[in-house]
């Protein structure tokens, strides 16, 4: 036991260091080349020969890197929670239909508004999109909470979550069919995801919701551990399963809903990172896994962001494609390694 504890300490120390390195590296990478020495002098003394570099660093790269950290933490933690609650290795932050709910909200705002105001040009408003996505994912979560108050069977809840998602996607498709090309593009760009739309002023909002989600998750750490054995065992160990589930759904919605609202849907991080965490830390204990996937998630999304910047060119890839390209091999590996899917239910 002490051996595994000291192993954990080393792992946490090592990965925290890696996180710091990745964060610095992410600040370093961008279309404008700023030498490391200049970068450090801006950070530590606040001065630079080129004043615009200060703007580039503090108004663009720093919020972007922080957003990557927050999003990585949120999505990975949300994914871990959902995999445990649904006892399904392929569950992720979006199984509850949160991203499709958010898409519907954004689609209604961006394209739906035009159906009623056909001639007027619609201006892309950041806060408007964020609010629409939030309301959309919140509505889906609310429906699911109502369902889980009445329905005890977790598989039924999962299926209903997927069906809610499908309905919203259908509605979004109808909206897409009837909309203008320009607006369609606005929506498509949102679905590709971006870490760069968050301003420095919005970071505290992200930090606040993230803390609330993490706090809820920590409160539920015993529930998560007992849920590993299934609902009946959890109940027989004195755990209120329905209450726990609702707290975890709320936590997941806050975490994934907020990130989706600010950055668009970012796929596969939430599914892949919890598995990497279990593999590296060799445990199923959420008291270790929660901090572990938070650190790993931040690292993975920082790396994804660096790749999406395509160092050496001034083009930028959509972050959602990069996370898919990085995450899907991990998911494939999970599926191949874990062939006994029969026991999931």
């Amino acid at each position: 036991m002490t051996r595994s504890r000291s192993r954990n300490t080393i792992l946490f120390a090592g990965f925290t260091l890696l996180l710091l390195v990745c964060f610095m590296a992410d600040l370093f990478i961008g279309s404008v080349h700023i030498a490391i020495g200049d970068l450090l002098s801006i950070i530590f003394s606040g001065k630079s020969e080129q004043p615009e570099w200060i703007t580039i660093l503090w108004d663009f790269r720093f919020p972007r890197a922080m957003t990557a950290v927050f999003a990585g933490i949120s999505l990975s933690l949300a994914g871990l929670q959902m995999q445990t609650v649904f006892r399904n290795p392929l569950a992720g932050p979006y199984v509850l239909g949160i991203s499709s709910g958010a898409s519907l909200g954004v689609a209604l705002l961006v394209m739906g508004a035009v159906m009623f105001l056909p001639q007027r040009e619609f201006h892309f408003q950041t806060w408007g999109v964020i609010a629409a996505a939030w309301i959309g994912s919140g509505a889906v979560m609310f429906l699911l909470l109502l369902v889980s108050l009445r329905i005890k069977d977790i598989m039924t809840i999962l299926i209903l979550g997927i069906l809610f998602g499908s309905i919203t996607i259908a509605i979004v498709s109808i909206l897409q069919y009837f909309t203008h090309e320009a607006l369609l593009k606005t929506f498509i760009v949102w679905t590709l995801g971006s870490l760069g739309n968050v301003t420095r002023g919005q970071l505290p909002v992200l930090a606040g919701t993230l803390s609330a989600g993490v706090l809820l998750s920590l409160v539920c750490v015993k529930i998560l551990n007992t849920l590993l054995l299934g609902e009946n065992y959890a109940r027989s160990m004195g755990v209120g399963v329905t209450t726990g589930r609702i707290l975890l759904f709320i936590s997941t919605s806050i975490l994934a809903g907020t990130i989706t609202a600010f950055c668009g849907p970012i796929g596969f991080i939430g599914i892949a990172v919890p598995h990497i965490g279990r593999l590296v830390w060799k445990t199923a204990d959420h008291r270790v896994l929660i901090p572990a996937v938070m650190i790993l998630g931040a690292i993975v999304l920082l790396i994804s962001d660096m790749i999406s910047q395509l160092p050496g060119s001034d083009r930028v890839l959509p972050i959602n494609s990069v996370t898919a390209l990085l995450g899907i091999p991990v998911v494939v590996w999970i599926v191949v390694r874990n062939r006994r899917f029969a026991n999931i239910s």
Binding site: V221, K222, A284, D285
Partner: peptide, 30 residues
């Protein structure tokens, strides 16, 4: 209570599983 359900949790060690049994007796963090 021990049910008929076959529990398979990757990464869960025997000693950790047994320690889960102490949960009704421990604080919020287990």
């Amino acid at each position: 209570f021990v049910s008929t359900e076959v529990v398979r949790v990757p990464g869960l060690r025997v000693s950790d599983l047994v320690a889960l049994g102490r949960y009704p007796h421990t604080n919020w963090f287990g």
